[in-house]
Design a protein around this nucleic acid. Sequence first.
DNA 1: CTCTCGATGCGCT
DNA 2: GCGCATCGAGAGA
Length: 216
Amino acid sequence: MKPISVQRPPAEMFHAPTLEVAHALLGMELHSTLGGAYTAGRIVEVEAYLGSQDPASHAYRGPSPRTAAMFKEGGHCYVYFVYGMHHCVNIVTGPGGTAGAVLIRAVEPLQGVSVMRERRAPAPDIALTNGPGKLCQALAINLEVNGEDLRHSQRLWLAGEPRRSLSQVIESRRIGITRATERRWRFYLAGNRYVSRILPDDTPLRRTTLRSTEAG
DNA sequence: CTCTCGATGCGCT
DNA sequence: GCGCATCGAGAGA
């Protein structure tokens, strides 16, 4: 069994710029007691959505009943229902009134794998949590916890230390959207088995500072 | 492996 | 009506 963290991250991490929160979440853990069982997974793939500055964001045109949770303070979650059958979960970023969010696209199972198998049957183990809809099913995440404060919740919460090194992070274009596809705001852990998709033009994340010339 | 397509509910134009 | 931050099955390379 892989080690599980019990410590919640500092609440300040959710007030960093959304892209930084997306990076920091990689490697952290998402824990759930929803559906009458304890399940948890390590976050291995995320996408950033920058609210009013991002045509691909559900919040681009401002708040609506559906997207109200995105406008909460950083550290809450935004859960939505899509394609008539799937749920997806986001970590909200920034101060209240703004709508940054980080979609959790894949986790690596850490706890409650047998329960995940029951919930996801007949999927093979590799497909338990390697997609945004799949992981919500495995962790029993649904609209019941839309808007939950993950900083204090006993039903759904984050654990572990925010990531600092970006050396194992791959940058990619976002999956399944039709707008703003040129913005490479999908990030995942290099080599991780549970990443949902590898695209031909994926590249290691480049540092944006201290970099005056192209790579040699 | 890749591509295509149907399922299925709901928010928005 | 249209389209959707998806998934799984099936066909073909």
